[in-house]
């Protein structure tokens, strides 16, 4: 089963003794704060985990896959994630099946 915000909040309740509402709020605010920084064009560096950054993409030609009609894909910003050394090393060793 995938890790979700609800499971993260449960962990904060169990490990840190935050009450359920506080735990849920801090998990929500954490992800919101990352979104706000990225929205402002700011990189977010979470040492030990990884960095979220932004890349500019120029306009490029695209196609509607259903109709085959040519339509330009407008210039945009996309969020990138670069995992840190520590996370890479921990994940590299994983030998089992990937949960899809």
């Amino acid at each position: 089963m995938a890790l979700t915000k609800a499971v993260m909040a449960d962990r904060l309740f169990e490990e840190l003794g935050l009450n359920k509402r506080e735990a849920k709020e801090i998990v929500d605010s954490f992800f919101e704060e990352v979104r706000l920084a990225l929205e402002k064009g700011e990189q977010v560096k979470l040492s030990g985990f990884g960095n979220f950054g932004l890349r500019k993409k120029n306009q490029r030609p695209g196609r509607n896959p259903k109709t085959g009609e040519e339509i330009p894909i407008s210039a945009r910003r996309v969020v990138t994630f670069r995992p840190g050394q520590k996370l890479r090393a921990r994940v590299e060793a994983y030998a089992g099946h990937i949960e899809q």
Binding site: A2, L3, K5, R11, F30, R35, K86
Partner: peptide, 29 residues
């Protein structure tokens, strides 16, 4: 809380588990 959260996420990925945060994104291997 933030440190526990990030450690929890790292543990999940290290165990081959996906992370799904609606409105934010998903992490997978």
């Amino acid at each position: 809380a933030v440190k526990t959260l990030l450690e929890h996420m790292s543990q999940a990925l290290a165990a081959g588990e996906r992370i799904e945060i609606r409105g934010f994104g998903s992490f997978s291997l």
